[in-house]
């Protein structure tokens, strides 16, 4: 079974972003970029399926500017077999990404598609579900365990209040939650080997998908600042403040 994994290049999760002074967007100049943490978990899961003999090939795909190829090379170093880069410098909204991925799915015919549950930049949590709708495949979102059983995949999902288990007919789409696995690090020899693995570049036009704007960002502003707090010396003072000053207990 072929497994398709998507990865997104995003700001490193440790970096605190700053909003541009003209309020057009956040400032991404000279900021450290990395693979979205949920995508790392997706790559890891695919590689584990390959190591377990379930997956025969792991194909990784990323969409965006040329610099995304760095993250594709990272995925190749982690164990993916080949990469597809859909190059575009335009803003690709979730629905457009899903439409482009739909074409990739049609070409590649994977048995399973693994994606992160959300990207830590836009925090949308949409693309996997949208791709599922466009392909007509079932979806196992927020997965914390994935088990392939013949023509089905059983997915334990993290839901409000606990866990839910669903059984999906393959091909299916799984989106990863944090506890699905612990991603590995790429070793230096594997980073070197990854440079020779195949990486194919396509454009939205090659795939026959029009990049259309469904939304317009009017402005981006910093969140309201909290006013500075105080340090209290002891528990008695804390309880007193909460009762008499903040009046919350």
């Amino acid at each position: 079974m072929k497994v398709l994994v998507t990865v997104k290049r995003v700001i490193d999760y440790n970096v605190k972003v700053r909003v541009k002074s003209d309020n057009s967007d956040v400032d991404l100049n000279n900021v450290k970029m990395a693979m979205n943490p949920f995508c790392e978990i997706a790559v890891e899961e695919a590689v584990r399926l390959k190591e377990a003999g379930v997956a025969t090939e792991v194909v990784v795909v990323s969409l965006g500017s040329k610099s995304c190829q760095e993250q594709l090379r990272t995925a190749l170093a982690l164990g993916a077999d080949r990469a597809i880069h859909i190059e575009s410098d335009e803003v690709l909204e979730s629905l457009t990404v899903a439409k482009l991925l739909q074409k990739v799915v049609a070409d590649e015919q994977p048995g399973l598609i693994i994606m992160g549950k959300q990207a830590i930049d836009t925090d949308n949590n949409q693309t996997g579900q949208m791709l599922a709708a466009l392909t007509g495949y079932p979806q196992g979102t927020f997965a914390s365990k994935v088990t392939i059983e013949g023509d089905n995949v059983q997915v334990i999902r993290e839901v409000d209040g606990g866990l839910q288990t669903v059984s999906l007919t393959l091909p299916a789409i799984v989106t990863t939650d944090l506890r699905l696995n612990e991603p590995r690090y790429a070793s230096l020899p594997n980073i070197m080997k990854a440079k020779r693995k195949p990486l194919e570049v396509k454009t939205p036009a090659d795939l026959g998908v029009e990049v259309k704007a469904h939304t317009r960002v009017v402005k981006v502003t910093p969140p309201a600042e909290r006013k500075a707090g105080i340090k209290v010396a002891c528990v008695e003072e804390l309880v007193d403040k909460l009762k008499n000053e903040a009046k919350v207990i």
């Binding site: 899903a98 949308n124 693309t127 599922a132 979102t141």
Partner: peptide
């Protein structure tokens, strides 16, 4: 935007060929 709403709503948006505005 509960886990249930987050799960099915983007699927609805894609079926209607429109964007979803999240959270």
């Amino acid at each position: 935007a509960t886990t249930s709403g987050k799960n099915f709503m983007p699927r609805v948006a894609a079926l209607l060929d429109v964007a979803q505005i999240s959270e």
